[in-house]
Every structure is written in C-alpha cells, then in structure tokens.
Design a protein around this nucleic acid. Structure first.
Lengths: 245, 245
DNA sequence: CGCGTGATTGAGGGTCCTCAATGCCGGTGG
DNA sequence: CCACCGGCATTGAGGACCCTCAATCACGCG
C-alpha cells in the first residue's frame, strides 16, 4: 500500500526549463503540425517540468484545475473512485499524451492520476494554452484533435466493455499498447507491462484472476508469450482476427 | 428495418435561418456564459437548421467531417459498428447537446448518428467555430468545457460498464436521463423513453432481455413504474442509494 | 533470507446470455 | 371494422462465462 501514499510534496519542479523545440515528442504531442516559430511560441507557456515517482499521484480528483500535463516520459494511470468505494481505471497514458482533459469542464480534476513508473511531465497552464491558441490556430486545432481522440478512444473502450469477452478485451488491450508503443519507436511485439493484473482488470472490467487466466489462455493458443510483466505478441495478425478487426 | 434506411437526402435544410440570441437553449448549449453581443456573433456561424426525421441518420461513421450539430429539439443515438458486425451505442443526445465531437480527430465522423424521434439540429461549421472562437474567448472556453464534459461522461459510462450489475446500470441510466431532462425543464420523475430495450442494452452492455428483466425487477421493488416506454421514478433517493451514490 | 505484494490456478456459485415461446401494440390491407 | 402482421417487450429454462473464495507460487525489496 506504500505506493498509494499521496506525495504531492515530492512532486518537485525539476532542473531545467523544458523546450518543445528540441523535444523528441514534437510529432506526437501538442506541437504536431506547427512550424518552428510556432513551436517556439508554444514553448513559452510550458512553465515547469515535474518529476513524479512511481506510485505518486500527479493530481487527485476534486483538486482545483489549472494545468494540463503532457507526459514527457514514463507511464500513468487515471482512475475514478465512487463514493461506495468502487474504482475504475479510465485510462493509461504514455509519452506524448495529455493528462487532465476531464478537468476542463468543472475546473476540478476528474480523476486520480498516478505514475506507474518514474516519470516526467510538462505542465501546460490551461488558461495560457487557450490564450496562445488564439494566436496559433494550428495549435488550437491540434488541441481539439487531441480532445476528440480521447473521446473516440473512450468510445472504443465502451465497445470493449459492452460487448467483448475476456480474452478479446485483453487482446484488444495488448494490441492498443502495441500500436502506441510502435508509434513512439518502441517494439510493437515485445514490451513490459507497467501495470498490475488488478489495474488491467479494472480497466477492462474484469477481475484480476480473469485477467491472469486470459493471459494463460492466449499463451496456450500460441498468440502471446507472457511471463510476469513481460509480454511478447507472437501472432499479431491472429490477435487482430480474434477481436474481429 | 425501415427506420434503418439511410435517407441523407431527406435531411433537408429547413425554412428559417436560426438565431442563438432568441433560442431557448442559450443556457445549455454553446452560448453558455456569453453576453448578448457575443451570442449575436456566434449566431452568424450557424448556417442551417436541419430537420431529421425519426429513424434517419444525421451522419454516418467515415463521412467527411465539416460540421458539428447542436440538437435544437428531438433525441439522437450515436453508435459505432465494428467490422465483425458488433455495435455499441455510445451515447444518447438531447436538446442543447453537441453531436460529432469524435469527428474532429480524424476529420471523419466517428459514429453513426440517428434521430430517435423527429428532430431538428443547428449546423455548426467547425472551421468557423474555431475562427470565431478566436475572437470570443468565452465561446472557445465553453466549447472546451463541452468536449471535456463528454470525456467525463464517457468515463462514468466506463465505470458503469466495468463494475456495475444490470439493475445498477439501468438505475444509473434512468437517473442520468432524469437529471438531464429536469435541467431542460421537463419532469425529472416521469418521462418517455425514446429508445428500444435493444438500444438501452447496447448502451449498457446488456442484452435486451436483461434490460427488460431489470425493469421488471426495479418495478417489483417499487422504485419505478414502467409500462412500455413510459417510466416513472417512484423513489429517486432509493435509486441513488442502489447505485452507491 | 523472510516478508509482502503480485500472479497463477482450481473449485464452486452467481449473473447474465441464449434460445424459445408468448403477449402486446400499432399499422396495413382485406 | 376486424384480422393479420411485424416489431417490440416480457418471461421462462438452461447453459456459458466470469466472479468469489482459497491455496500456492514467484518475485523483489528491505
């Protein structure tokens, strides 16, 4: 339970002021589609780069909203907690993805967001983003596309939760990770899971035992190899076929 | 099956040019938070008001995206269709709500969107919305809040699909409708469902028989009365208690 | 090295799905 | 006007899938 401790204070501002111009994420993050001058302008709004250590929360649901956070490196999970204690993991976020989009509506963060490994995030003050967006239409447009993508992704998860069986859900999940990783230059067939079976289950609407069994089943079928957190996708095409795509 | 016929052509432009200034939805739609002059300015971008008859599609997934649509009156469902034939209803939309937000990311509509009763929508050309938004910061901000609200709502649905039982899902669904209807001046305790059991089931991740059984169960427990499409919420507080809220 | 957390696997039970029959309502045509 | 028909809804019986509870195992960290 140690990693559930809240540790806002240790979310310390890091060393150097970050710059989007030299960032390796220019083609997956907010700067997509901007020219050099525009990226430079965007760069002025990124105040701080924060470090968030594994198990620490970047923000909690209900806290006042001022900034979005772009994942510079690392891995996060977002989850919501109902009053009766039930939780739901609403998403996993990797390099170049934007945290906190749900907070805009009520100006309070809508999820608890925790680092699943030591991570860094760039703080994006939202009021300034709106302001600079007015001067750089392609930036505003890119931001809208990012929000829209989150909506589409959530609809895909609804499809998954609403009408797929356990093995299909897990296969879909693995293929989604694979795609996102490969877009970032990592292997699309072999990677380490940063989350536990319990967290996967919470995301997929399954109990951890079912997740475990489904991993074993996929392995028996020869579609993947799994050992603890290490996954290898052996037959990507068949995985896609399994989920009907 | 007649109401599944595609009938884009009969989605005809309607008579008069609409105006946001006199619209009864000023406090639930895009104009929220704007002053009179700003609403007038916003009004210039609303090109057409369309009629969409019950069973007709406003747009289909994959079609080129140019405009969002605000529901002027009526009721819509949005759904996604996988290549293997599975469908998922991703949302129901009523007066003052915005259709097509998922289309921004890929500039193609991401869902099929159908009217469940004779309806009217205001067309909001997206490029112009971004343009006018630059001149009216509160409009842009309101738009961001609307997108954000959709994300939060989708997360709530994920919670529902991931960790609630059939009766709880249905109770949550009814209470959500109730809230949105009362915000629009309708009864929060008695209303007509515009959708079939099948559509409710698709949204809630249940089969239509289970939806029907759950209605009956809630009725036996005295929490609601249900007769065909007519629902009456008899004990709202207990319904909330049932879903752990 | 031992402890704690996380993962795997099994047995049994519950919830929801599947299949099927019946009922209801509105629309259509004889 | 009534009979019929199609779509929608209800209800039942049986089975599939996943959950619950529990024991065991593996791994990493102090």
């Amino acid at each position: 339970m140690l990693n559930k401790l809240v540790a806002e204070h240790s979310v310390v501002a890091a060393q150097q002021k970050p710059s989007c111009t030299t960032c390796s994420l220019r083609d997956v993050c907010l700067p997509v589609g901007l020219d050099d001058a525009e990226v430079q302008h965007l760069s002025t709004l990124i105040k701080h780069k924060f470090r968030v250590r594994r198990g620490e929360y970047l923000f909690h649901a209900g806290a006042d909203f001022k900034s979005l956070y772009a994942v510079k490196n690392g891995f996060f999970k977002a989850s919501i907690l109902k009053t009766d204690g039930r939780t739901q993991v609403t998403g996993f976020y990797m390099t170049g993805e934007l945290l906190g989009l749900g907070a805009i509506s009520l100006e309070k963060y809508s999820c608890d967001t925790m680092a699943l490994e030591d991570s860094e995030v760039c703080e994006v003050p939202f009021a300034k983003l709106e302001e600079i967006g007015r001067a750089i239409p392609p930036l505003m447009n890119q931001f809208h596309k990012i929000m829209s993508r989150e909506i589409v992704h959530d609809h895909d998860v609804m499809m998954l939760l609403g009408s797929m069986k356990a093995e299909e859900r897990l296969a879909t999940f693995l293929l989604n990770l694979s795609t996102r990783l490969s877009r970032r230059g990592y292997s699309s067939t072999e990677f380490n899971l940063k989350m536990t079976r319990h967290e996967i289950g919470s995301y997929l609407g399954l109990k951890l035992e079912t997740v475990s069994r489904s991993f074993s089943k996929l392995q028996e079928e020869g579609l993947i190899s799994i050992s603890n957190k290490r996954v290898k996708l052996e037959k990507i095409a068949e995985l896609y076929r399994k989920i009907g795509d």
